[in-house]
């Protein structure tokens, strides 16, 4: 057993977990067996995905934007006075 077996194991576990997640979240054969997806139309599903993405990204982006803006203002005011 090599010395850095732990590092290898960690790396492998990470890759396995990642692959498993990708497999289960997006694999096309499972898509066909999706129990709920048939209920609405394709477009509805797409719209739900799109709006989910919008709603997730917008608030975080705005808050981060405002914080960065304040930070910049703060830095420039410090430079101005000092």
């Amino acid at each position: 057993m090599s010395k850095n077996w732990f590092g290898e194991l960690k790396n492998k576990t990470g890759i396995t977990v990642f692959t498993v997640l990708i497999y289960f979240t997006g694999f096309p054969s499972i898509l066909k067996a999706c129990a709920v997806c048939f209920s609405g139309t394709e477009e509805t599903l797409g719209a739900f995905y799109l709006t989910t993405l919008i709603l997730i990204i917008l608030p975080i982006a705005m808050i981060v934007g405002v914080v960065l803006w304040l930070y910049k203002k703060k830095l420039s005011s410090l430079n101005h006075s000092g």
């Binding site: 997640l21 997006g26 499972i30 709920v36 739900f48 989910t52 709603l55 997730i56």
Partner: peptide, 19 residues
Amino acid sequence: FIVWAHHQFVAGIDPRMAN
């Protein structure tokens, strides 16, 4: 902001989204 759909696991959303 990115956890809310867990209230809808059995409500008829896409199960892939649930993962």
